[in-house]
Amino acid sequence: MQRQTTQRRPVLVYDGDCAFCTSSVRFMERRLRPRCEASPWQFTDLARLGIARQRAEHEVLWVTPTGSVHGGAQAVAKLLMSTPGGWPVVGALLTLPPVRWFAHAAYRIIARNRQRLPGGTAACALPSSRSGRKPS
Protein backbone atom coordinates (compact mmCIF):
# COMPACT_ATOMS: atom_id res chain seq x y z
CA MET A 1 0.00 0.00 0.00
CA GLN A 2 1.33 3.41 -0.96
CA ARG A 3 0.38 6.43 1.11
CA GLN A 4 1.15 10.07 0.43
CA THR A 5 3.26 11.50 3.26
CA THR A 6 4.60 14.96 4.02
CA GLN A 7 8.16 13.80 4.61
CA ARG A 8 10.93 15.03 2.33
CA ARG A 9 13.45 12.28 3.01
CA PRO A 10 13.07 8.52 3.27
CA VAL A 11 12.60 7.14 6.78
CA LEU A 12 14.32 4.03 8.09
CA VAL A 13 12.07 2.51 10.78
CA TYR A 14 13.80 0.06 13.12
CA ASP A 15 13.34 -1.59 16.52
CA GLY A 16 14.61 0.89 19.11
CA ASP A 17 14.30 -1.68 21.90
CA CYS A 18 16.85 -3.92 20.19
CA ALA A 19 20.46 -3.07 21.01
CA PHE A 20 21.70 -4.91 17.89
CA CYS A 21 19.33 -2.93 15.63
CA THR A 22 20.14 0.37 17.31
CA SER A 23 23.90 -0.19 17.14
CA SER A 24 23.61 -1.24 13.48
CA VAL A 25 21.69 1.93 12.62
CA ARG A 26 24.16 4.12 14.55
CA PHE A 27 27.07 2.43 12.75
CA MET A 28 25.45 3.06 9.36
CA GLU A 29 24.76 6.69 10.25
CA ARG A 30 28.40 7.26 11.24
CA ARG A 31 30.14 5.23 8.54
CA LEU A 32 27.81 5.13 5.52
CA ARG A 33 25.97 8.45 5.97
CA PRO A 34 22.68 7.40 4.31
CA ARG A 35 20.38 10.15 3.08
CA CYS A 36 17.43 9.32 5.32
CA GLU A 37 15.98 9.82 8.74
CA ALA A 38 16.28 6.85 11.11
CA SER A 39 13.50 6.44 13.64
CA PRO A 40 12.70 3.69 16.16
CA TRP A 41 9.20 2.37 15.47
CA GLN A 42 8.34 2.92 19.12
CA PHE A 43 8.64 6.71 18.60
CA THR A 44 7.29 6.91 15.06
CA ASP A 45 3.79 7.81 13.89
CA LEU A 46 3.34 4.50 12.07
CA ALA A 47 -0.19 5.37 10.91
CA ARG A 48 1.10 8.52 9.17
CA LEU A 49 3.60 6.36 7.30
CA GLY A 50 1.01 3.70 6.48
CA ILE A 51 2.74 0.96 8.48
CA ALA A 52 1.11 -1.66 10.69
CA ARG A 53 2.75 -2.06 14.10
CA GLN A 54 3.06 -5.84 13.53
CA ARG A 55 5.17 -5.22 10.44
CA ALA A 56 7.38 -2.67 12.21
CA GLU A 57 7.96 -5.17 15.03
CA HIS A 58 8.92 -7.83 12.49
CA GLU A 59 11.43 -6.11 10.17
CA VAL A 60 13.31 -2.92 9.40
CA LEU A 61 11.37 -0.69 7.01
CA TRP A 62 12.33 1.91 4.42
CA VAL A 63 9.55 4.40 3.69
CA THR A 64 9.97 6.70 0.70
CA PRO A 65 8.63 10.28 0.62
CA THR A 66 5.87 9.04 -1.71
CA GLY A 67 4.81 6.38 0.80
CA SER A 68 6.29 3.21 -0.73
CA VAL A 69 7.36 0.77 1.98
CA HIS A 70 10.22 -1.73 1.58
CA GLY A 71 10.94 -4.24 4.32
CA GLY A 72 13.76 -6.48 5.49
CA ALA A 73 16.64 -7.00 3.07
CA GLN A 74 15.05 -4.66 0.54
CA ALA A 75 14.98 -1.89 3.17
CA VAL A 76 18.70 -2.47 3.69
CA ALA A 77 19.21 -2.37 -0.09
CA LYS A 78 17.38 0.98 -0.31
CA LEU A 79 19.44 2.32 2.59
CA LEU A 80 22.68 1.32 0.84
CA MET A 81 21.45 2.89 -2.39
CA SER A 82 21.03 6.21 -0.52
CA THR A 83 24.67 6.41 0.58
CA PRO A 84 27.67 8.04 -1.10
CA GLY A 85 30.57 6.04 -2.52
CA GLY A 86 30.35 2.48 -3.81
CA TRP A 87 27.57 1.24 -1.49
CA PRO A 88 24.76 2.06 -3.94
CA VAL A 89 26.14 -0.65 -6.25
CA VAL A 90 25.91 -3.19 -3.42
CA GLY A 91 22.38 -2.01 -2.66
CA ALA A 92 21.34 -2.33 -6.30
CA LEU A 93 22.73 -5.88 -6.43
CA LEU A 94 20.61 -6.79 -3.40
CA THR A 95 17.49 -5.96 -5.42
CA LEU A 96 18.28 -8.38 -8.26
CA PRO A 97 17.40 -12.09 -8.37
CA PRO A 98 19.05 -14.39 -7.29
CA VAL A 99 21.02 -12.10 -4.94
CA ARG A 100 17.69 -10.75 -3.65
CA TRP A 101 16.60 -14.26 -2.61
CA PHE A 102 19.84 -14.90 -0.72
CA ALA A 103 19.65 -11.45 0.90
CA HIS A 104 16.11 -12.19 2.07
CA ALA A 105 17.18 -15.54 3.57
CA ALA A 106 20.20 -13.95 5.28
CA TYR A 107 18.04 -11.13 6.66
CA ARG A 108 15.52 -13.59 8.14
CA ILE A 109 18.32 -15.61 9.79
CA ILE A 110 19.83 -12.44 11.29
CA ALA A 111 16.42 -11.15 12.43
CA ARG A 112 15.58 -14.43 14.16
CA ASN A 113 18.94 -14.54 15.92
CA ARG A 114 19.67 -10.85 16.55
CA GLN A 115 19.71 -11.35 20.34
CA ARG A 116 22.73 -13.67 19.86
CA LEU A 117 24.72 -11.25 17.70
CA PRO A 118 27.29 -8.72 18.99
CA GLY A 119 25.44 -5.91 20.74
CA GLY A 120 22.29 -8.02 21.04
CA THR A 121 20.40 -8.51 24.29
CA ALA A 122 17.35 -10.51 25.37
CA ALA A 123 15.21 -7.48 24.40
CA CYS A 124 16.32 -8.04 20.79
CA ALA A 125 14.50 -11.37 20.46
CA LEU A 126 11.37 -11.36 18.35
CA PRO A 127 8.35 -12.40 20.41
CA SER A 128 7.91 -16.16 20.08
CA SER A 129 4.37 -15.76 18.72
CA ARG A 130 5.83 -14.05 15.64
CA SER A 131 9.28 -15.59 15.25
CA GLY A 132 8.02 -18.27 12.86
CA ARG A 133 5.93 -15.87 10.75
CA LYS A 134 6.89 -14.95 7.26
CA PRO A 135 7.37 -11.24 6.55
CA SER A 136 4.43 -9.25 5.25
Results as ranks from 00 to 15, higher is better:
Pro34Lys: 05
Gly72His: 08
Cys21Phe: 12
Tyr107Pro: 02
Thr64Pro: 03
Ala73Ile: 06
Thr83Pro: 03
Cys18Phe: 11
Trp62His: 09
Asp15Glu: 03
Thr66His: 04
Thr6Glu: 11
Thr64Asp: 11
Asp17Ser: 02
Pro97Cys: 02
Leu46Thr: 03
Ser68Cys: 10
Ala125Arg: 11
Ser23Cys: 08
Leu80Gln: 01
Met1Leu: 10
Leu79Pro: 07
Pro88Thr: 09
Gln7Gly: 07
Phe20Asp: 07
Leu32Ser: 09
Thr66Ile: 09
His104Met: 12
Pro118Glu: 03
Cys124Met: 04
Thr5Met: 00
Ile110Ala: 13
Ser128Asn: 15
Val99Trp: 05
Arg100Pro: 03
Ser68Gln: 15
Ile110Asn: 03
Phe102Gly: 08
Trp101Met: 09
Val76Met: 12
Gly132Trp: 12
Ser23Tyr: 14
Arg35Leu: 09
Val99His: 01
Met1Gly: 05
Leu93Lys: 07
Phe43Gln: 07
Arg31Gly: 01
Val25Phe: 08
Thr95Gln: 15
Arg116Trp: 07
Arg108Tyr: 07
Val25Glu: 03
Leu49Gln: 02
Thr95Leu: 15
Val13Phe: 06
Val76Ala: 14
Gly132Gln: 15
Asp17Trp: 01
Gln115Leu: 11
Ala52Asp: 13
Leu94Asp: 08
Asp45Lys: 00
Gly71Cys: 07
Val99Ser: 01
Lys78Leu: 15
Val69Gly: 05
Pro127Met: 02
Leu93Asp: 04
Val13Ile: 13
Met81Ile: 09
Val90Ala: 13
Arg33Tyr: 08
Asp15Phe: 00
Arg26Gly: 03
Val89Met: 04
Gly91Gln: 08
Gly71Lys: 11
Thr44Leu: 01
Ala19Phe: 01
Ile110Trp: 05
Arg3Cys: 01
Arg100Phe: 06
Asp45His: 04
Cys124Gln: 05
Pro40Cys: 00
Arg130Leu: 11
Ala123Arg: 14
Ile109Arg: 08
Gly16Thr: 05
Leu94Tyr: 09
Arg108Leu: 15
Ile109Asp: 01
Ser39Met: 08
Lys134Met: 10
His58Lys: 13
Thr66Phe: 00
Ala111Tyr: 03
Arg55Ser: 14
Pro84Ala: 08
